[in-house]
Write a protein that binds this DNA or RNA. Structure first.
Lengths: 415, 415
DNA sequence: GGGTCGGCTGAATCATGCT
DNA sequence: AAGCATGATTCAGCCGACC
């Protein structure tokens, strides 16, 4: 039966969804919302959070109690929230919460989901089916995993995280340089070695038993947040548990919203968060270190006299050269072979590659033959413009580079 | 239209599947079968192979060319075999070949599938949907992965293998001890650190380019085969490629069947296998070092006089004791408290645990009070029966244990 | 012959802002 | 919205060339 428009003004029938009571994300930032995550997410506006971290039930399907060789019993995940009748039920649940998560995510946001081989393949397939675009799968290698007591399998020494963008071709955030610094100057890899959550960090109940079966280590959350968020970003965790995501967010100057169904965990997380430290100084948070430096047009080097008109520039093998023109372009050849263009365009011509960064391709040549990339001149100009004095080491380096070149010392610059 | 029975005797119509031409697995062991793996597997009898290793297409979905910072172009996987129109097509393909693989697998067999985040979640979900039972996901961590040239993601430094049994409750093979030895005496973990296939191992074509885009390192196959097969086992690889699985199988004394669609790869693999070394001495293959040992009934210790009837056995804390009976059982208590059973059953009774290994639970007690597990007696008996002299260290240990006990020196045994 | 240096390559879903 | 200009970006290992 087709509904007439006037029906809509009447009270909703039982078959219709309950009227949505909207939640203002900014108003609830920093708190834990009690309730089913699907229902709570429905009340959040679309495109309202920067990142989502989710640690959903693993659907462990343990056959029976497991005992160590000394016959002591292993404390397993036996909570009701981890029980699903079959894969279909788990898939339905996964699609449901993940569809809401995607709606709530900003177009340029990303989602992280952690799981084990029991559930991660269902989760990954659902992520792809819902239109997310996987960026990496990341392996958390445990330094101290539980051994395999029966000796029937490999020690299950890792868990898998999936990192995905909301859409295939969006501009997501990845703090590449920050993570490279965290990894001693090498690119951060997709395998992370971290201890499991134990010792004082592991929350206990009154009787000294672990308060939550699957509490994640803060170090894991730190790395996730540092990789994919900026200070001030809003992070959503729909399976908040003991609130590790919130603790990490607070420490890193990120905002968060936690959703948790179990009232006991809600209480626990709120008490934990009240005492969690907050980084007082935003400068300590770092960021990516690639906050855009002011753009410098090549022509400015000519105008400021750093590169006099007619100066010859060479590639690193000194096989190609161009001459600096007054209009900030460079030229090469004579007569019919003559050509001119930007440092980048002429770099493409000279190198034959598909693209070229002229700043690092072209060099000045000192009288003794030493080649210096013109990017070095740009760096010095930037330093002057910022009116920040060079460090002693930088001054030394600058003088050393300048010594014996045809290039005049940098001038004062006014924009 | 319903078909009448008599139709079946006539020549098959084009709509009917072609008549199956059966393949005898033993006859084709050690060779490469050319053709589509689904069609070829259909011709193999059900339950005919011990293990399957599969390296299916990853469905990479690469957008455009990628260049290194030095502008050289990355050689991508651009082969037609890796192209699928969408996830649905890939899923259908995956289900189809994997269903055949499961049929061909022995009930106690296992399957290994390798993939990356592009496909492994589809593969894992299909494995579960088809009734396989996942035993582990194993992470191949690459020592030397390709970097992320644009700094937009984590270095994709690993691939994932799924190891699954045909059914949930089958007795599959896992050479636990062999892998523990491979790992310096520690349990083998689910994360394996291995280099990618390069250098002389990497097959090249006439022009020095890689012969196959995705050749896997032999070390990876060695470990897989050592973990999950016994010498003489028949291993099937439905995506044989350059035949690394065959080379590893030949070296480890396993039999193999390779299936490969591309005639060029078939030729290449056959030539490679002809020159691949075969381990001549089966003793070098090792095995697990467990099931080679003959089973020793507890009663044999009584029959051989190693444990005279009436000897008292104690648990490690000397809190419980049993007496050895002539029939190879042990008994405890008197009158109404009397009970008897196997060393294992009585161990369960004494320890209160769910299970008990009587060989390590029960001990003989020397006059000076020293307790020695009866497993030590079994070990000495095994050594005699094998007529293999003990190593010097074993002799020392055995003597030390025997010194001052009530237990007579081992007798010569004839079975 | 040995050591050093530069070049090449590997299952890769690899850019962004302005006009 | 599409096109164009700018310019940011790599690690381990093998191999050959060259001292």
């Amino acid at each position: 039966m087709r509904r007439r428009r006037s029906d809509r003004t009447s009270a909703p029938s039982p078959a219709e969804p309950a009227p949505i009571d909207p939640i203002d994300p900014d108003a609830v930032a920093g708190s834990v919302l009690a309730g089913d995550c699907i229902e709570v997410m429905r009340r959040l506006p679309a495109g309202s959070v920067d990142m989502i971290f989710a640690d959903p039930p693993y659907n462990l399907q343990l056959a029976g109690p497991l005992h160590r060789p000394n016959n002591s019993r292993v404390a397993a995940v036996e909570d009701a929230w981890d029980k699903f009748p079959d894969f279909a039920a788990y898939d339905a649940f996964t699609h449901a919460w993940m569809a809401e998560a995607r709606r709530v995510l900003k177009p340029q946001g990303t989602i992280w989901v952690i799981g084990s081989y029991h559930n991660i393949f269902r989760v990954g397939a659902a992520i792809q089916d819902l239109g997310f675009w996987i960026l990496n799968d990341v392996i958390w290698r445990k330094t101290n995993p539980m051994p395999n007591f029966r000796g029937r399998r490999f020690t299950n020494a890792h868990e898998t995280l999936i990192w995905a963008a909301r859409d295939a071709r969006t501009r997501y955030r990845f703090n590449y340089k920050a993570l490279k610094r965290l990894n001693d100057g090498l690119q951060m890899r997709s395998d992370w070695l971290l201890p499991i959550c134990s010792g004082p960090e592991r929350l206990k109940d009154g009787e000294g038993r672990k308060a939550h079966a699957t509490q994640k280590p803060l170090a894991l959350l730190y790395r996730v947040l540092q990789a994919a968020t900026a200070p001030g970003d809003l992070v959503l965790d729909p399976f908040f548990g003991t609130g590790s995501t919130g603790v990490a967010a607070k420490a890193l100057g990120r905002r968060f919203i936690g959703i948790e169904r179990d009232p006991g965990y809600v209480d626990l997380a709120m008490r934990r968060l009240a005492e969690a430290p907050e980084t007082p100084d935003p400068k300590l948070l770092g960021g990516d270190g690639v906050e855009r430096e002011p753009r410098i047009a090549f022509g400015l080097l000519v105008e400021t006299g750093l590169l006099p008109v007619g100066t010859k520039l060479w590639d690193r093998q000194a096989r190609h050269s161009v001459k600096v023109r007054a209009d900030g372009l460079v030229e090469t050849g004579r007569g019919r072979n003559a050509a001119f263009g930007s440092i980048h365009q002429m770099g493409v011509k000279a190198s034959g590659g598909p693209s070229c960064n002229g700043w690092t391709f072209w060099h000045t040549r000192a009288r003794n033959g030493t080649l210096t990339p013109i990017d070095e001149l740009r760096r010095r100009l930037r330093a002057e413009m910022a009116e920040e004095p060079l460090t002693a080491a930088e001054e030394d380096a600058a003088e050393e580079n300048a010594a014996g070149t045809d290039i005049p010392a940098p001038l004062s610059v006014t924009t």
